[in-house]
Design a protein around this nucleic acid. Sequence first.
DNA 1: CTAATCCCTATAAAACCGATAGAGATAATG
DNA 2: CATTATCTCTATCGGTTTTATAGGGATTAG
Lengths: 151, 151
Amino acid sequence: MISNKAKYALRALLAVAAQPDGEALTSTEIARTHSIPHKFLEQILLDLKKAGILESRRGKAGGYVMLRPADTISFGEVLRIFDGPLAPLPCLSRVAYRRCEDCESEARCLIRRELARSYDASRQVLDSRTMADALREGQDAPLTAPVRRAG
Amino acid sequence: MISNKAKYALRALLAVAAQPDGEALTSTEIARTHSIPHKFLEQILLDLKKAGILESRRGKAGGYVMLRPADTISFGEVLRIFDGPLAPLPCLSRVAYRRCEDCESEARCLIRRELARSYDASRQVLDSRTMADALREGQDAPLTAPVRRAG
DNA sequence: CTAATCCCTATAAAACCGATAGAGATAATG
DNA sequence: CATTATCTCTATCGGTTTTATAGGGATTAG
């Protein structure tokens, strides 16, 4: 399960990305429309700014805008910021590799070998699908009927 | 990341499954050969027994043996026992479905839609690969060289 | 009877999660 | 300049989860 924090972050990010042109969106507005605790959201937006994903304008008429285009920000990147490595084992993470202290041989570890298969599969999705992809698909999807993809 | 508990459980389970015939393996022996805290391991083995995966024999010359054959026990099943649902969102779990309290429409939730893709990919691996698969592949793998698959 | 084993429950330190709080910095507006 | 709306930063806090450790009780072989 992903954390609430990560879920809030994705919601907020999609909201900012969906904004027309370079119009800023305030934390208050996001919190209100998406049912996110305001002060908690502020921390999250700050993290997204520190990560170089959002840009902020202070003072009255301030708010948040995208710093990088939405089609360069993957779900995987956002999840890593808030929930840490996506890998099921530390020894499978490329970004945050750590050896399992009690492991004798990574090459012979059966658990590592199997979990690597699963990780490969999910990572390929999470690191390739972007905020822009999600928004685009959201537009031409049915509004009330259950989701149904071509094919 | 999976928990230590789940990792220990998988190690222990693979050890018991690798045992010849119906020979029992004691918790003490597993703890020693796999560097798992003994009393912690006892709790884990008990959970595996309650889950109907292992069978135990008490008293002197006791130990643990498989209750179900190794090719019927998937990695997904074990991970669910110790770490809970594999789904990234409660609303994506089939076994433990829960609605996101603050979600307006599951069908229109962009986060849900994207995470479902990732979850589908990893679940297919975790629920199909069994302890027996892992052991079988472990046998014909190279002993010292890095892992390398055909193709 | 003894020793080895599984079985069960209680306890606890540390980390993590999900916020809440308050004050400071900045900028637009009149 | 004063006001107000916003972002910025740090601290705190209650609850839960994780990762064990501890101590004994039940069972069985020999």
